[in-house]
Design a protein around this nucleic acid. Structure first.
Lengths: 188, 188
DNA sequence: TTCGAACTAGTCCAAATCGAACTAGTTCGA
DNA sequence: TCGAACTAGTTCGATTTGGACTAGTTCGAA
């Protein structure tokens, strides 16, 4: 009896993330895109073309099942459900897979790094814009916070929300620090 | 007279980053890989295969020049230098290009998000591991800090270093917060 | 002293990911 | 009633990643 102890297929983390979101209930690729943006979007944002191809793969693997829905008022669609096999595979991935490295890339920080080649005012402008974006993201997260706080079913998502809040706040403070440094003519 | 006002070719930020690093002096792809890891590595880390292909592209564009170096003790190599055209293009990209979005993906946060499906002890282990990695990165950056601080030629890189320090510290604090929450059995 | 590990310098390729355009119909507000 | 936004998805090229492979050299430990 292999007791379900077959090797887990090695899949990119994004595939597992999509599978995880299917635990929220039956959904179309279109729904999933919106769900991603409203939940894990701050640390995992696949292009929608990727969402659709992951869904095809999950069906291949029998981790998800597909169901055609004909609609008259709207375009037809396909809904996806996670299978029991999918659920156990998800749990195993969560428990057993070694931690992959985060990946962070910031074209903005690249610019700051080469800031000595920039026009000073342009640089200040861009730091301000970056600051504004961080502030907007922070506002979004802050709006979400009270709806998740204290909800027992949302305890884990809430932890990731806290990470986002903290990261936005740090980013804003750093921008202010930089703007101060750029205004004092200490910098060459 | 077009006064050098031709349109800048639209290139991914990574191409410009490599070009920027060529302002540090003549280098091979191999050197560049090490320079990346020691400088912009925390917010831009291309695979080495990408470094080599960017270099080819920069030569195509005449933003860099290539020079073969025959060696006896080591494998032969090719060194790259930035051209004057490359320098002005770099400055123009820095000043003129609109700010692209950062991209952050964290398989770890995906796991935390779905933490309710995890074995509690496994989750705690993984948070500890993540914390350790952040602490190691912080130590690296802290070791770098005194060598850059106050160096006028390193003023801008120093700003990005501050961002890294702050981000590592925030990350560690967040992990501690999470570990506390997981130990108090408040979580389901 | 000699074996293996790490360093130097790069290539090749498949897979993963992104992003923009395109299709095509519907609803909704000005 | 016109255009914008929403629903639902496909296609394709370009980017980016990571791992395997080549091939020689140096350096430390057994």
């Amino acid at each position: 009896m292999a007791k379900g102890r077959e090797a887990l297929p090695k899949l990119p983390a994004g595939t597992w993330a999509i599978l995880g979101l299917l635990t929220f209930g039956e959904q179309s690729g279109y729904d999933l895109k919106k769900l991603v943006d409203a939940s894990v979007g701050h640390f995992f944002s696949p292009a929608k073309s990727q969402i659709y191809s992951e869904l095809r793969r999950l069906v291949q693997l029998r981790y998800a099942r597909e169901r055609e829905i004909a609609q008259t008022d709207r375009p037809d669609k396909r809904n996806y459900t996670i299978t029991p096999a999918g659920e156990t595979a998800l749990r195993r991935w969560l428990d057993e897979s070694p931690l992959e490295e985060d990946s962070f890339k910031s074209p903005f920080l690249v610019k700051v790094f080469f800031g000595r080649y920039m026009d000073r005012d342009r640089l200040i402008e861009q730091v301000r814009e970056y600051r504004d974006r961080s502030a907007a993201e922070l506002a979004e997260l802050e709006a979400l916070e009270p709806t998740l706080r204290g909800q027992p079913f949302a305890a884990f998502p809430y932890l990731t929300l806290r990470a986002g809040l903290s990261s936005c706040r740090h980013s804003i403070r750093w921008c202010d620090e930089v703007l101060r440094a750029l205004q004092e003519e200490v910098m060459t």
